[in-house]
Nucleic acid binder design. Structure first.
Lengths: 239, 239
DNA sequence: CGGGGATGTTTTGTCGACAAAATCATTGAC
DNA sequence: GTCAATGATTTTGTCGACAAAACATCCCCG
């Protein structure tokens, strides 16, 4: 039941990852995490040494990230971290709400007992992580478990395409989320929202579950806009 | 109102495309068109000469196509054209139906008179193209206009993300569509379907328009499965 | 006759180097 | 003082070459 990141043909000895693939993951993580700020120019010659690789694998990683939407390409002018803007955040929010609903409905309808266990387990981990202090330095781990929880919720959905889209949207959203948590108060009652969401899903109440995710996503976005009123003027996207 | 393929910053002199970008378009076209059959191994050393470029731009193009879903990567084992399968076609069909509905609703709601003109113009071109013989060799042009028509229908949707997803799904579907048209009878009454669809959209009857696209997409899929019963056994995906 | 391993060939991934393009700084003219 | 043109510098895109990995072949042994 490995994560479907690497499509390995069954029976193959699982080829070791190429340099480009590993740097791809690292790059994506740094962009999502915010270490590489939105709009930053990705000068390969400068990045290559810091990653300990040549420019070729980096270039490959950037290309893939461009198709994922986390990086923009401008011919003859290289790559840069995709900018953020209020319009983009709004689009992201609505699209994610819609895609998440579709996937969630499917997952709730098809989920079996294994799925239920995965959901409850993921929820357990998440609240456990929440308890042990919301120190800033733990955000990475929390965000990780947060992603796993949402993945678990949708894991019974049988549409790889929907799941792929959802993952992309989730990652792009995480970029904005980080902008809020970097500032903000400990948080609102995310715990409660997650628990209610899981309960509705496990209770096979698709309508309620959908309503809850939609609101969950909306609240997160509101929180982001609250912490960054400047986003309304696209000030972060310029430089 | 140019196609949003190249995100050019306003005021820039529009940089000339890089080799990788142009080969990307050619490659995508050939994959969609079927010239490069599903599952084909993409041996860069062999392809590079035929495209008149080195392996580097080709590799870049393959990476981007991989993130788009038209190509698969296996570390240390190179690229190959994404395989086709009944499961994939089914997923594609359902997901496209859902995404198309969302985008169409938005477009119908927001469309102004410019949008109406675009839709009717695209429809005109499409039927005109249909009249001048359905010779096999004209499929390229027809498919092109077909795509433009569907784009026009959705062009008033204000969600770039939804549109991007839709375009990806549409392109992937086109691959299957070609499998059918390569064989099949001239076709069913696609003309009529398109006209009814446009009429419903222009009449702002979102419900009816959605129902029509859903059926339109379903019919196309049925036709494909009809021409290729082998798809049910995934025989095309192997080699 | 079939399976396992050694060997040679093809293909892939990566690097360093080069040319063209963009960027930046300076200068000079209006 | 603003702007355009010029030149120096950085950065990008592309190529060819090299090492490692995968793949195919053949041979040997059971």
């Amino acid at each position: 039941m490995a994560i479907a990141t690497n499509r390995t043909r069954a029976g193959r000895p699982a080829p070791e990852p190429t340099l480009a693939s590993s740097v791809l993951d690292r790059l994506r993580a740094e962009i999502v995490k915010g270490t590489l700020a939105p709009g930053t120019k990705l000068r390969l010659e400068h990045l290559a040494p810091s990653y300990g690789v040549g420019r070729t694998p980096l270039r490959e990683a950037c290309c893939r990230l461009a198709a994922e939407g986390l990086v923009t390409i401008e011919d003859q002018r290289g790559f840069r971290v995709a900018p953020v803007s209020a319009a983009d955040l709004q689009d992201l929010t609505r699209t994610r709400q819609q895609v998440a609903q579709l996937a969630l409905r499917s997952s709730i309808q098809r989920g079996n007992s294994v799925w239920e266990d995965q959901v409850t387990a993921a929820l357990q981990r998440l609240v456990a992580r929440g308890r042990q202090g919301v120190t800033r330095r733990l955000d990475d781990a929390w965000e990780h478990d947060h992603g796993l929880f949402h993945d678990a919720l949708l894991s019974a959905c049988d549409s790889p395409l929907l799941l792929r889209f959802h993952r992309q949207l989730f990652e792009q959203s995480e970029r904005y989320r980080r902008l809020a948590t970097a500032y903000g108060q400990p948080t609102r009652d995310v715990e409660g929202e997650h628990q209610a969401l899981a309960a509705a899903a496990l209770g096979r109440d698709a309508e309620r579950a959908c309503a809850l995710v939609v609101e969950h996503i909306s609240r997160t976005t509101d929180r982001v806009l609250e912490c960054h009123p400047g986003l309304r003027r696209d000030e972060l996207s310029t430089k």
